[in-house]
């Protein structure tokens, strides 16, 4: 068996710290997939994955937040049961909900750039609520835009048909997740990297 005989190149402490958090946030994102909370006036219960996509951008920033979501997608692609309904497999990443899944890393990156203005992280509890809300609403529009757009193309649906199937029912839940994400960062109980 071939062996490598190079010097060991250690990973920097900061990188290890951020990486461990990104990996475990990706795990959390997969672990909440089966949790559904019923909400009034909507047939679709909310799932918490988008909430943790928001939190990835807010708490890990544009770089490690994106890495975290990419790890989640990679774990799902090789078959870990982390996607909705505890499914996994490369097929899901090109299937009907693929647009949503691929929008997650972009959304986390966008939120991170909006809120932290770069890779040096600021304490999100000190950032104005308005800015956080604007970032989260923009990210939600991005997620649904990509999700619905891809679904319309893949299944050869009219745009409004895709919106009916893939977005309309979920709007109340999204507002609620934005409220929850704001409450979590403003509690100040979670420190950034």
């Amino acid at each position: 068996m071939a062996t490598e005989q190079n010097d060991v190149e250690l990973v920097d402490g900061d990188v290890v710290h951020a990486f461990a958090r990104a990996a475990l946030l990706a795990t959390l994102l997969g672990a909440v997939a089966p949790i559904a909370i019923p909400i009034p006036f909507s047939p679709a219960p909310i799932t918490l994955q988008v909430l943790f996509v928001f939190l990835a951008g807010l708490l890990l920033g544009p770089l490690w937040g994106t890495v975290s979501i990419l790890l989640y997608l990679a774990a799902g692609a090789i078959g870990l049961p982390v996607f909705a309904g505890m499914a996994g497999g490369l097929g899901v990443l090109v299937g009907d909900s693929a647009g949503y899944l691929w929008s997650y890393p972009l959304a986390a990156c966008l939120i991170g750039l909006f809120v932290h203005r770069g890779t040096d992280l600021r304490d999100p509890a000190e950032i104005s609520t308005a800015l956080v809300v604007v970032a989260l609403v923009t990210a939600t529009v991005l997620i649904y835009g990509m999700g619905v757009g891809y679904m319309a193309w893949l299944l050869e649906l009219e745009l409004w048909e895709a919106i009916t199937v893939g977005a309309l029912w979920f709007v109340p839940g999204e507002l609620l997740k934005i409220a929850a994400a704001v409450a979590i960062v403003e509690s100040g109980r979670i420190d950034t990297v």
Binding site: L25, L28, V32, L48, L59, L176, A180, A181, I184, R189
Partner: peptide
């Protein structure tokens, strides 16, 4: 959602 998010995180 806030409770699960905060404690989970």
């Amino acid at each position: 959602a806030t409770t699960i998010g905060l404690l989970g995180l």
